[in-house]
Write a protein that binds this DNA or RNA. Structure first.
Length: 237
DNA sequence: AAAAGTAGCAACCGCCAGGTG
DNA sequence: GCACCTGGCGGTTGCTACTTT
């Protein structure tokens, strides 16, 4: 025998809640309290599923809800908690009175996850750029151009230009990394929690960037996918 | 100004754990 | 021990507002 549905889906209203419905639910709960969500819609005169009423109350109508965007500090705290707890949104939300698990989850999936991805890919890009630069220099040396030992005047102008571009790009990259160092520290926490091997250096040193050192990326796309997987399947103990 | 793309978030779905008879 | 019910949770969808082309 199969599980019975929580409500008659043909006869319940779905979609966005109206002001009138909200008012009915709030009035009912404030006057009667919550005993059984299944009975709430019937008693409150709502054509809604009990689950839907519960969700609406918890995520939107509760009087103790805090409104407005989360501060940078709160976001940092979410990152830290997430590194310890994984996707246990209700546990994470319990550290933020007035915030709901749904809200935390939404913020993670939209704002925070995107931010971390961006920072991570910046670091990997810097790493790849540096590797490319070294490869290029070694090619030049192979051809006997003696790049490292030659005097400025003996370098070809195009090579000097290339060198300047690299230096400039690396400086920019390092500047970006130092701005994002606090969030990167939390990512370092993730690496430790998921028992990655190797030294992590996420504070801006372009030659020792993060755990990318231990992984061979054949393309930026592979790297991107790795980050995506990493953020999606955190294997915390 | 209009179409297409993107971001943010409310709401839904299905599964699971715990309680009860 | 079991069948069933409910509440709770996390993943996902779909709508709307905003931005870009």
């Amino acid at each position: 025998m199969g599980r019975q549905p929580c409500c008659d889906k043909e006869r319940v209203k779905r979609g966005s809640w109206t002001v009138e419905e909200d008012q009915k639910l709030v009035d009912f709960i404030l006057n009667n309290g919550i005993h059984c969500w299944r009975l709430v819609p019937k008693l409150a005169g709502l054509m809604r599923c009990g689950k839907s009423c519960r969700l609406r109350w918890i995520n939107y109508l509760r009087p103790d809800l805090k409104r407005g965007a989360l501060s940078e500090t709160e976001q940092q705290q979410i990152i830290k908690l997430h590194s310890n707890l994984g996707n246990r949104w209700s546990k994470i939300a319990s550290h933020f009175p007035g915030r709901t698990d749904n809200e935390i989850k939404n913020i993670w999936n939209t704002t925070i996850k995107k931010k971390l991805k961006l920072q991570c890919s910046d670091q990997l890009t810097a790493k790849n750029m540096e590797a490319d630069r070294k490869k290029h220099i070694s090619k030049v040396e192979d051809k006997g151009w003696e790049f490292e030992t030659s005097t400025e005047s003996s370098k070809s102008s195009s090579f000097q230009e290339l060198e300047q571009n690299w230096t400039q790009e690396m400086k920019l990259m390092q500047a970006n990394l130092s701005i994002s160092s606090s969030a990167s520290t939390s990512m370092e926490g993730n690496v430790n929690a998921s028992s990655w091997e190797g030294e992590s250096n996420v504070h801006g040193e372009s030659d020792e960037l993060f755990w990318a050192d231990t992984i061979d990326y054949s393309s930026s796309w592979d790297a991107y996918n790795f980050i995506d997987d990493f953020l999606h399947y955190e294997n915390y103990p």
